[in-house]
Amino acid sequence: MECRNIQNLMIDFIDGNIFGDRKEQIEEHLLVCKKCRDEHMKVKQLQDDLKLIEDEVPREEMKSNFYSMLEQEKKQLNENKISREKYHETKHLGRNFMKYAAITIALLSIGFLLGQQMQLRNTNQEEIALLKQELNEMQQNFSMASLTNSTASQRLKAVNTISDQIKPDDKMIYTLINTLKNYDNVNVKMAAANALAKYPENKKVRDVLIESLQNEEDPALQITLIGILTQIQDKRAKNALQNILQNDNTIPVVKQQAEEGLKVFI
């Protein structure tokens, strides 16, 4: 080994971190090389002398300072904790509530799953579906009955009930169309028109709406119909709108609406 290598390994050698062949090589080299022997002596001396430097004991006040600091920090931590607890009391309550809610939901879910396992599912759902259907029918029947006779306010209510239902049958649409065509109360007609507006895919509905636009003379109803027809985008409404524009009896507000409606069709 060369002197350079030896000197690089010197500290590890002195610290006892070199073993086996390498250690022997260094030892042999030190026997024959005075330069490296001196170097070894110096580093070893330094390492030994460094051990002479002992830790000094600090003054006693360091301890007392530390413990008074610790007490102060503890006090502060406690105060913070108390104020924080007060501040977050409501939050904790909320958290507890959420915990109980979660437990409740979990229990309910277990119950539901058990119910499913007991194969009550099918009969239950069938029953529910049946009940729903019956309820719908009852509602419809009631609405029809109200529409075909009774007072304006009852009819109005009936029209609104029908329009809330999702799937109307032809019979109901027919009733609505009849109401729009033949009933003489403007409010009921408007409600019927609005209810029909929900079924634009039905051709009969579109026909009766356009027909009404051509025939009706009440401004409020006209404006309602213009709004519905421009939304439905039935091109046949164009003629009806132009007729309204050319009609001298039409009041300006309706004309304006018709004009705007026409823009949509262009």
Partner: peptide
Amino acid sequence: GDLDALAPLFEKFHIKLY
């Protein structure tokens, strides 16, 4: 939050740190 647990650490290390 158990600040008292710092005391033994202080005892062990304060001379070294000083």
